[in-house]
Write a protein that binds this DNA or RNA. Structure first.
Lengths: 193, 193
DNA sequence: GTGTAAATTGACTAGTCAGTCAATATGGTG
DNA sequence: CACCATATTGACTGACTAGTCAATTTACAC
């Protein structure tokens, strides 16, 4: 018997990731994906039942990887301030190391091509973030306003920050941009002295 | 002689706006646009040379309308703080009154289907915003960090804020969300006391 | 080796798309 | 009214697409 090849599946997923972000879902023919991935059309449909199944799998993977990376060492930090800063640095670091994945997530976060199921599963990985904000409010570090609103603005600001940091190639410059950006976010959230 | 009908052109543009935001560029056949707009296929191509030409025109229009609305009464405000707050309220108000246009702008702001020309023309309407931040830094209201970075995060935060405000139908609730969000943005920018 | 179950192939199908064009309808003008 | 430039129509074309499937190759078990 022959075994399915994880390398081929991976090649298809990676190629699709790049093409989808560059050209959009409908703008990317499955024929182009299989060609660039170095497999036949039929092979793509052996590993993924439909084109929708392909983007769904991609979405689930990228979203859970992003969440995993953002949590790194979060339990080592004590205060909400330190936790948020670590989180922000993790997110920025991952985004800068994986610009294509970041762009894919932004582009398909509200896309109808990704199934509702996959969207919900994706969101579930990030629920801990809202708890983090809630804890900060409870112990008086963060201003007492609607946590989900705060979390939402924070996420957008962070995403804009990473996009801006990606414009430069100089790592030192980047570090500075991210530091300033995280300051902006923290000053926006903390209680005034 | 017969004159071109602005109403027909408008109908095509409005229909295309809705369909593009709902289904994406490649997901929307020109046949569907013309059908829903109540004209024949040929008429669409009489007013717009290609499908690209159509989305380009749409992008230019929406972007310049958004910029125009955001500037409303800005010169009446004296301080950077007041100018930014007015700007934020204008932006939020426009976004809430025109959710489809807002979604269109977000979706195609970095899209390859819109020509580079149209993108540059779109950006040019918002350059005054960076000057506003620069002025605020000069007179000591805003923290002295890279203005383009500050502007970039501010724009993302604002966009996230509007998206979040759109989730509720209650105008009072909305007002509160927007107020809180604009506080977040201002605390992020201002110099500390 | 040999057998075999499963992976891989690519020509193929039925359907869809952007854009064309010859025919027709329309409205302004004199 | 009659004329005519032009706005409008929709059947049509050539190109392209998601997904199929019968034929072929591969890798593992014995």
């Amino acid at each position: 018997m022959r075994e399915p090849s994880p390398e081929k599946q991976e090649a298809i997923l990676n190629t699709a990731l790049t093409l989808f972000t560059e050209r959009g879902f409908f703008g990317t023919p499955t024929s182009l994906i299989s060609k660039k991935a170095g497999v036949a059309t039929g092979t793509l449909f052996f590993y993924f039942r439909t084109k929708e199944d392909l983007i769904d799998t991609l979405y689930r993977r990228v979203k859970s990887e992003a969440a995993r990376e953002m949590c790194r060492g979060l339990d080592k930090e004590k205060t909400a301030k330190d936790k948020l800063r670590r989180l922000g640095k993790n997110a920025a670091g991952w985004g800068i190391r994986n610009p294509a994945k970041l762009k894919f997530m932004e582009q398909f976060a509200h896309s109808p091509f990704v199934s509702t199921n996959a969207h919900e599963e994706g969101m579930s990985h990030f629920l801990f973030l809202e708890d983090l904000v809630r804890d900060g409010i409870r112990n008086g570090e963060i201003r007492d306003v609607d946590p989900s609103g705060l979390f939402c603005i924070m996420a957008s600001a962070l995403s804009g920050l990473i996009a801006h940091a990606l414009l430069t190639d100089d790592p030192a410059e980047r570090e500075k941009i991210i530091g300033n950006g995280l300051d902006f976010i923290w000053y926006g959230m903390k209680v005034e002295e």
